[in-house]
Design a protein around this nucleic acid. Structure first.
Lengths: 122, 122
DNA sequence: CAAATACTAAGGTGTTTACCTAAGTATTGC
DNA sequence: GCAATACTTAGGTAAACACCTTAGTATTTG
């Protein structure tokens, strides 16, 4: 069980989250992540499904690697990318925290409306 | 209920998700979302905490609204923004799906390693 | 060893982003 | 009514992005 999870007050984090969300904002890059969740894959195999010049595509891979969402190793002339799940969790944590916050807010609003109603009925 | 083909993105409405992740990629905008999860707030009150010219800040609000993460209403001269939780869920869903996929992948790898070990011990 | 393969580097282009200032337009308070 | 308030509009800039082409460099493979 390898888990990078310091007890973070996840709400507001550094520029790291910027980079992760930015990386996720592109469909090419999301597709790469989806495919890497199946298995590690070489640059050319990943690139084959994208109608784009290779250097352009490789740039996307570099972006994913630079924010830590994937890692790569070169063996011979082949570079293979794999998913690096820890970082995705950062983004998920932020969203989860947010959801909890707005759910809390909705609950408070419910309470408020309930109290209003009770006063009306009094 | 058609299942998507293995090499196709699992995600629906990619353009919408692009916009949402892009919106989340900026710390100013994330901070606005965090504050709106407390309560609806006017433009000037939101802007007060950001060292930025008002028109610049308002641009961030427009971005959040254009991708549906928040909504606004103007009453008199005051425009009030509030959180619109549905869309955040889209981003969360994508990440959740991804997590399930890579967890599946890790499980398969565990199985594989387990089988290897059992063969060794035979 | 030559040719094919798998990237990698370098540099160029048009668009989008994230800010700015200056000058509006409605509303509201006195 | 006049001034303060709360945005809005218009426009301008520098840097980042997402592509491209052309030309490399290592590594296999026949």
């Amino acid at each position: 069980m390898s888990k990078v999870r310091p007890d973070a007050p996840v709400t507001a984090e550094p520029a790291m989250i910027d980079g992760i969300f930015r990386a996720l904002a592109d469909p090419t890059r999301r597709n790469v992540l989806e495919r890497l969740s199946e298995r590690p894959t070489s640059v050319s195999e990943l690139a084959a499904k994208h109608a784009m010049a290779l250097p352009s595509f490789v740039e996307h891979l570099k972006i994913l690697e630079s924010c830590g969402l994937v890692s790569s190793r070169k063996v011979g002339r082949v570079r293979t990318y794999s998913l690096a799940p820890d970082r995705l969790r950062l983004a998920e944590d932020w969203l989860g925290t947010q959801r909890r916050l707005w759910e809390g807010r909705l609950d408070r609003m419910d309470d408020y409306l309930l109290r209003l109603k009770m006063e009306e009925n009094r």
